[in-house]
Simulated scan of single mutants.
Amino acid sequence: MSQNSSPPGADAARRAHGSRAVHVLARGGYVASGVLHLLVAWVAVQLALGRPTGEADQSGAFRTLGQLPGGELALWAVAVGFAALALWQVGTAILGVPNAEHQAGARAKSVAKAVLYGVLAGSSVRYAQGAGGGGESEESLTAGVLSMPGGAWLVGAVGLVIVGVGVYHVVKGVRKKFLRDLTGTGGSSVRPVVVRLGQAGYVAKGIALGVVGGLVLTAAVTTDPSQAGGLDEALHTMRDQPYGPALLLVVGLGIAAFGGYSFARARFARL
Rank of each mutant, 00 (worst) to 15 (best):
R265N: 05
F82W: 11
L85G: 12
P192T: 06
V190E: 04
Y261K: 05
V212R: 03
R191A: 15
P242A: 14
G201P: 12
G130D: 04
V35T: 08
K172N: 12
V145A: 09
T185V: 12
L247M: 15
R239I: 05
T218P: 00
R107Y: 11
V80H: 05
V221I: 15
F268D: 10
W88T: 12
L39Q: 11
S262F: 10
G29Q: 01
A106P: 13
A266T: 08
R180S: 13
L38D: 08
A44R: 01
N4I: 07
V251I: 15
P8A: 06
S59N: 12
V119W: 03
P245G: 10
E55R: 11
L217C: 14
Y117L: 02
A131R: 14
R126C: 10
A79K: 04
G105Y: 00
G229N: 07
L25W: 02
A32I: 02
R239P: 09
K176V: 14
G150C: 04
G135V: 05
L215C: 05
A41L: 05
T142Y: 04
A56S: 13
V195N: 03
V45M: 11
T142S: 13
S188I: 12
R126P: 02
Q3C: 02
A220I: 10
R175S: 12
T92L: 15
V193K: 00
L116A: 15
L95C: 05
L182C: 03
A44H: 03
D232K: 02
G118K: 01
A220E: 06
R270F: 01
A131E: 15
A131D: 13
G28N: 09
G156D: 00
A93Q: 09
T142K: 03
M148C: 09
V171M: 13
A61M: 03
P245H: 08
V195I: 14
K177Q: 13
L179M: 12
G9C: 08
A114H: 12
V40F: 00
A100G: 13
G186N: 15
P7L: 13
I255A: 05
V250T: 15
L253A: 15
L85S: 07
G134E: 11
V125R: 11
G132P: 12
G66E: 04
G206M: 08
V22K: 01
V97R: 11
L25F: 06
V211S: 08
L120I: 11
A26L: 01
G70C: 09
L36T: 04
A257M: 10
P192D: 09
P8G: 03
S147F: 00
P98M: 09
S124L: 06
V194K: 01
G18V: 07
A200H: 07
L120Q: 14
A157I: 10
E139V: 15
G122W: 10
A220T: 09
P7G: 00
G9S: 00
I94L: 13
L179I: 08
R51P: 01
G254K: 06
I207E: 02
D240M: 11
V111E: 06
Y117Q: 01
T223Q: 15
T53N: 01
A48Q: 06
G229W: 08
V31K: 01
V145G: 10
L38F: 02
P242T: 08
D224V: 05
V212M: 14
